[in-house]
Amino acid sequence: MKFIESIRNGLDSLLGNYPEVVLYGEDLIDPYGGAFKVTKGLSTKYPDRVWNTPISEAAIIGMSAGMAMCKMKPIVEIMFGDFTSLGVDQLLNHLTKYAWMYNNQVETPVTIRTAMGGRRGYGPTHSQSLEALLSTIPGLSIIAPSHYHDPGRILQQAVLEDSSVKVFSEYKLLYPQELQTPNTVKSGLTLDVSSDVYPIAHLSNCEFDNPEILIISYGGNALLLEQVLLDLLIEYELSAQCALPARIKPFDPLQIQHLISEAQVVLVVEESPKCHGWGAEVVATLSEAGLLSGKNVFRIGSAETPIPSSMAQEEQVLPSAAQIMETISQILV
């Protein structure tokens, strides 16, 4: 099954089984079915609960607050992650505050699905990964699965069981990817996925045998990192493991605690700029937990510039496998 199909099935199952679930956003009804076709077919199947909205992210997100307080479970789609900024006031000053301001008499279990990430030549305002920016809002959870997770199942659990306000980030290049299981994973790699509500996927090039390198990342970076793991193996036989938590905020250091002890190099990879980024938070959290002493720690992120439209230039700005390989080989080779 492909990543996009898994999410579509998850939405289908939610709409089919739970009348309180509604799904709306820009251009998502048939025949168009959304800019990335995730919702294709759903408006035909559930015409009264899948809607198009006007082009106003503030309205889309704000409206969900009211519905959630009326015991509905709204799922909204923001066409491009970059546009969530237009709804930030609603997220920052309304949705994430109501439960606290009204003494937990109301809750706002809203799920905001949005497509993030670059490498498609969409230019500076349609290619960003804003997880780190949004993660500074207290009370907002951020979920960013990879194709090593089951995104449809995670989405269902998030909608049904997690009453926080959630941003569900879908990396654009993951949509056509086949979901990977321990049996289908590329030769040379092994996969293990935890059974948590928000599972963490571990990808290893050494069958989890005391990796020298631990790479922490999320979402679509998995595409880059599976290549890095294979390159490290073929070029240098360096043992490395990649930890991909499905929920990146709040970040739970306990999920990777057991992996860190043997690693000499800990690397955090994100597609947004590393300055004040998610990697900084991960490193600080692990460090406070006393897990990083004596290790070589690096963050790799995009350049501190807008993302160019030219794909050749975009390649230069976003983190690359070569960059990661160079960072590691300078320490270990």
């Binding site: 030769s187 040379g188 193996l233 073929i234 070029e235 240098y236 036989e237």
Partner: peptide, 8 residues
């Protein structure tokens, strides 16, 4: 059906 690492 197989591939050798550089060390191999």
């Amino acid at each position: 059906s197989y591939m050798l690492t550089k060390k191999a």
